[in-house]
Amino acid sequence: MEIVLAIVVGTLYGCGLYLMMRRNLVQLIIGLALISHGANLLIFTAGGLRQGGAPILAEGDAAFAQIPADPLPQALILTAIVISFAVTAFALVLFLRTYQTVGTDDVDQLKETDT
């Protein structure tokens, strides 16, 4: 299972980087989103893929009946997803406004600050 996920992570990173290097602003933002998905999946994979029960003690028990799954990577990913959601939403507004001001979605035309 790790190998499959590793390939998926690699593909996400590869597609994301490819899209980021395109000249289109919309493709740029999709690329950024894919890379952040890749990072989230990487945390999930690196955190260890274990099958196990929920990490919640039943009332009155002193120890887990079976080895519980590690909840922390999922908490981390949840936080990261929330953050990337907010940042991507902001980036969309920014890109839209740039498109309206500059009148192009071609990254190559954004040369105002290149001196």
Binding site: L32, P73, L76
Partner: peptide
């Protein structure tokens, strides 16, 4: 954003380790 994604990936590997 790219730097944040790198940072996050580093955190993930470090946590796994």
């Amino acid at each position: 954003l790219l730097s944040s994604a790198l940072f996050l990936a580093g955190i993930g590997i470090l946590y796994g380790m």
